[in-house]
Design a protein around this nucleic acid. Structure first.
Lengths: 327, 327
DNA sequence: GTGAAAGCGCTAACAT
DNA sequence: ATGTTAGCGCTTTCAC
């Protein structure tokens, strides 16, 4: 059906070895024969069979990415970053979505392991030690750090610190925080940072516990917040913040007049909200791109020291934060 | 490093052929030997090398999906549907994002063609005849029909018809429509249906032309709509509708009091909007799942008659539609 | 710079 | 039911 290197070799009057060299950049072939080979190849519609190439080189040229939820714009953007960078390197990407189920992460890892050269694992919901350890494949984590692992994270601590400092400056000294999934490393960072900063600033912090990283989680968080004396709510992410805003509206609480709200991630959602959402910007495309870059280095030297890259975050002031109403 | 079928064969005291059979469902092996082989395989950490398997069978067990924009929740949901169905069939999925650029669709198609058994092409922005025709790989289209092609589409005509009928019943007889990308097949369906229905219902339809399927496109559409006598706006999709709502708000036009708005797709965004958005529900997970199912049938019988599956749509009434204000 | 030949790890006839 | 054998299409020594 499709033509093989042998067909091209015959047509160009060379050996299959020469055809192979002509198609691999490094190959030492004279310009004239390379041109001849490439011409015949085009004429015959030939391109090297990736399976055969892979069987012998052991490299697929593909990379895998595993995310908790594709429908979450946060992860969609990360994948777009991976995609963009991978396209330049002519790598194809295999995507796995675990539906926020930690249990499926091991399965996804295992099923991708034999298919790709390396895997990017974004915001794992599992404990690191619960991940299969016998995969023997380079893995770069996004938004999770662990000893001996390569990773790209963001400075969530600084971002939420800025948020709290800003709220304090506006006059809020009773602030609620709605946390995310228990095993979210970045969630842990946020909580820890808020505790420290609250103590330093003399702000009273009301920890509402962990809610689902969804609209529904946000609805619940709003009610919890209203049961405290807090005049401002910091949410785990933009989705939770928007859910909370809906609920505040339904309960007749004006935002930001009666309650200030701060999200996290700066996804497109934060600009869609009415009023638009004050949030912590977390680079997403950049995280995806950086993860591919790290994976390439890892692939180039498997024994290299793991790199832990940290991206900057910053508070973005929009319309949901204001001084608390005087009482 | 990793063990091969030969290692397992030796350990289990059988031939490589038996190992192969034990690992392929259909293989005729006695239960006892299969168990023995599987045990040794597990002990040695063996699993069949997909590249080798593929080289000989010609099947990769992978499928490709190409979308205009991963960050658009509409496509993210389609991919989730594909993903869910593919996971059951133990297929991995390769995802390509073309950044809304028609030009990249051909590239994506070509680069995936050798890597997967079949491709799902969602909402292509290219004309069908501009797609490479020499790929020799099963393709299922989503939201595009073309003679001789397999496809899954939705009945957009019915959905927007319901929207117009509903607006008419509320008392609107001047309705604006903001269209999407020129080569969007589903966009064409919407336009055509609206024209026909408007004529039947005696509604005056103001076609605002085509805007970008983004927030910014929505902002622009709002201004165009306000320059007409229309009291209601039907938008290409939810994103455009939300953009328009923002702009109406900024220009002091109350929604739905001063202007009713209808979106399309019923993505999560429509529930996030304030007020929540009246929209046309378009099945997305289902479209992704159906596309995989069709691809499986196509793969099973390459000479089968192409199937054109059409999913139902329906108007979902929420908070952005109301009778026009009396003047 | 180029060709000949030896596999990469597996599956699919064909035997038995 | 199981073993033997011949490749799948390519890359990579090793000669020349």
């Amino acid at each position: 059906m499709t033509s093989t290197s042998r067909d091209v070799a015959r047509a160009a009057g060379v050996s299959v070895a020469t055809v192979s060299r002509a198609f691999s950049e490094a190959g030492a072939v004279s310009d004239s024969t390379r041109r001849k080979v490439l011409t015949e190849a085009r004429r015959l519609g030939y391109s090297p069979n990736p399976a055969a190439r892979r069987l012998i080189t052991g490299r697929s040229g593909n990379i895998g990415i595993i995310v908790p939820d594709l429908a979450n714009p946060f992860f969609a953007d990360i994948i777009k970053g991976v995609q963009r960078r991978a396209r330049e390197g002519r790598q194809a990407i295999l995507v796995a979505d675990t539906d926020e189920q930690a249990r499926l992460e091991g399965d996804a890892l295992r099923s991708l392991a034999r298919q790709v050269d390396g895997i990017i694992l974004a915001s794992p919901r599992s404990a690191i030690e619960d991940l299969p350890g016998d995969l023997n494949i380079p893995i770069v984590l996004i938004h999770r750090q662990a000893p001996g692992w390569w990773s790209v994270t963001a400075d969530f601590a600084e971002g939420v610190r800025q948020a709290l400092v800003n709220l304090r400056a506006l006059g809020h000294d009773h602030v609620a925080y709605a946390g995310g999934p228990h095993l979210s490393w970045s969630g842990g960072m946020r909580t820890e940072s808020l505790r420290t900063c609250a103590a330093e600033l003399g702000v009273h912090l009301y920890e509402l516990g962990s809610v689902a990283p969804t609209i529904d989680g946000g609805l619940a968080a709003a009610d919890l917040a209203l049961a405290t004396p807090a005049t401002a709510l910091i949410a785990y992410n933009d989705v939770v913040a928007l859910g909370a805003m809906r609920r505040f509206g339904a309960r007749g609480v004006d935002v930001p007049g009666g309650m200030s709200v701060v999200g996290c991630d700066n996804t497109m959602l934060s600009q869609l909200a009415v009023p638009s959402l004050t949030t912590v910007d977390v680079p997403r495309f950049e995280a995806g791109e950086a993860a591919v870059a790290l994976l390439d280095r890892y692939l180039a030297d498997a024994d290299a020291e793991p790199i832990e890259q940290v991206l900057a975050t910053a508070l973005v002031i929009r319309g949901t934060t204001a001084p608390p109403r005087q009482t």
